[in-house]
Simulated scan of single mutants.
Amino acid sequence: MVRGVRGATTTEANDENEILAATEEVVGQMIKENNISPEQVAQVLITVTPDLNAAFPARALRSFDGWTFVPVMCATEIDVPNALPKCIRIMMTVNTDKQQKEINHIYLKNAKQLRPEFAR
């Protein structure tokens, strides 16, 4: 069965190292809490708000063992007035036997306000 695993986080600045570290943190938790192996992953879509352009957050996934061949794409979120700034969102499409209610979606830092029911 195919399921979507969501995650989001924020950074303090439009800084390459900060974007990569924040992405690695949230994706690492998504992997750990959902017991995801790279072979289960069909694709990962990462979006950033328009104020984050210092790095491609997809690069952070290459730090995980075995993730070299996982298809990853970055895009920019639509520029909605008063939206949460400096936000990185992840949609990971995985093959899993888990039911939707068993998926652990990960929301960190200021992104907790996006989905308080999933906040860490």
Rank of each mutant, 00 (worst) to 15 (best):
M1Y: 14
R6C: 09
T9Q: 02
T10V: 02
T11L: 02
T11C: 07
T11I: 00
E12V: 05
E12T: 10
E16M: 00
I19Q: 00
I19F: 02
A21Q: 06
A22I: 00
A22S: 01
T23E: 00
E24Q: 05
V26W: 00
V27A: 01
M30I: 15
I31D: 06
E33K: 08
N34F: 09
N34Q: 07
S37R: 08
P38R: 05
P38W: 02
E39F: 08
Q40M: 04
A42H: 13
A42M: 08
Q43F: 13
Q43G: 10
T49C: 05
P50D: 03
D51N: 06
L52K: 05
L52A: 07
N53D: 14
N53H: 15
F56R: 11
F56S: 15
F56G: 12
P57Y: 02
A58F: 02
R59G: 14
L61Y: 09
R62L: 15
S63M: 04
S63R: 11
F64Y: 12
F64N: 07
W67C: 06
W67L: 03
T68Y: 13
F69W: 13
F69Y: 15
V70R: 10
V72E: 07
V72S: 03
V72G: 03
M73K: 14
C74Q: 15
A75H: 11
T76L: 09
E77G: 03
E77A: 08
E77N: 10
I78E: 15
D79N: 13
V80W: 12
V80H: 14
V80D: 13
V80A: 11
P81E: 03
N82T: 08
P85E: 00
K86N: 05
C87S: 10
I88D: 06
R89A: 11
I90A: 02
M92Y: 08
M92R: 06
T93V: 11
T96W: 09
T96V: 04
D97E: 10
D97L: 09
Q100M: 14
Q100D: 15
Q100A: 15
K101H: 14
E102I: 08
E102N: 13
I103Y: 12
N104Y: 12
N104H: 15
N104S: 14
H105I: 02
I106T: 11
I106M: 09
Q113T: 11
Q113I: 11
R115I: 15
R115G: 07
P116G: 04
F118M: 13
F118W: 15
